[in-house]
Design a protein around this nucleic acid. Sequence first.
DNA 1: GCAAATTTTGACCGATTGGACAAACGTTAG
DNA 2: CTAACGTTTGTCCAATCGGTCAAAATTTGC
Lengths: 210, 210
Amino acid sequence: MSVGTRAHRPRTRIQREKRELILEAALEVFSAHGFRGSTIDQIAEAAGMSKPNLLYYFRRKEDIFTTLIHRLMETWLAPLHELDNVGDPMTELRGYIRRKLEMARDYPRESRLFANEILQGAPRIMLLLEGELKALVDEKAEVIRGWMRDGKIARCDPRHLIFSIWATTQHYADFDVQVRAVLGPDRGGDGRFEDAARFLEQLYLEGLRP
Amino acid sequence: MSVGTRAHRPRTRIQREKRELILEAALEVFSAHGFRGSTIDQIAEAAGMSKPNLLYYFRRKEDIFTTLIHRLMETWLAPLHELDNVGDPMTELRGYIRRKLEMARDYPRESRLFANEILQGAPRIMLLLEGELKALVDEKAEVIRGWMRDGKIARCDPRHLIFSIWATTQHYADFDVQVRAVLGPDRGGDGRFEDAARFLEQLYLEGLRP
DNA sequence: GCAAATTTTGACCGATTGGACAAACGTTAG
DNA sequence: CTAACGTTTGTCCAATCGGTCAAAATTTGC
């Protein structure tokens, strides 16, 4: 009997290990080829097991994907959660941009996985977007609006500010090949994230000065 | 004999019309599901013809895709071509941002098609990126650098400036469902492009002030 | 109007894919 | 040791997909 069918039996050590192995392999494959572009065989091979064996731990291809994307959602939104009004507003925002850019650098697969899902119309995470994500953005937008009322940063639409930070930082993960191609072999090799950080820091520092 | 196999016979009226019909249908399907996520049957149905009939005009699925993406590349880069140093630098940049945002609003399918291709590693347009695109960006980066030397705009890396404009504007096409979900039914319905234009205009106007 | 060329269609094919299943193999607790 | 449970594998299947092909239907040039 497969793992999924057993009703609420606690997970075995092997089950925990193998499921992690599969999810790691699936992240690699899904982020590179998208959902439909990936096959169970590819994931199974990347995880070092046979296809029926993989299907013993996840009954359907889609189960792997949804498990993966729901889990990643938390880590992906962590930087925004950290944004609060304890420190200096400009420092807070700069820190947020820096953390988002670091995530694009260190977790490009996660970024591309999300981008792919959103591009396809987000069929599997629409409820998450309308629920948790919207609530989080609304909450943080209110924090930012407070900064504006206090005259700490320039007045603007805080939600579009958040969008622009998402867009500019994730661009370096999602459009990596384009960035590399345009920058050429010299600056595309490395250090492009430092350049990006410098540029974005300046843009937002000056652009949001009250 | 199929259209592709005949050696350089001029295109019939029907061939021109039907090929356009197919490319329009393919844009619709490919932009929604990506290359591997789309089937010839889907495209054929969207174009109102049978699969073998479609394959009479394009011998392979990939031929449709490459024809489509190469043709779109021109219109997609047109706004950047228009960026030159005849007018006031700030006005030029603001116009570029506005045009890019209008393209995201009016041609979201094209934007998503490109995004999808880049996300998959740009296997079919890598040469274009390293060739035409890089050359164009290099050229325009030099124009922008000239503005900086003249003290017209703040000094920064012009290529990352271009990246950020691409990212922020195309975000409203590629991540449309996310933007709508976060903004909610009220502002997601319409007018979000005006809000975005206002925000971006302010961000870049202030952020690039010399 | 007719022959040649073009266009359309239905039937078909091999490869791939997601998934089912039962049997074999391993592991572990008593 | 052994019985129960967990894990792995080989085999198989139906559906889908990209693409072929020959024949039928239509259009075009003269």
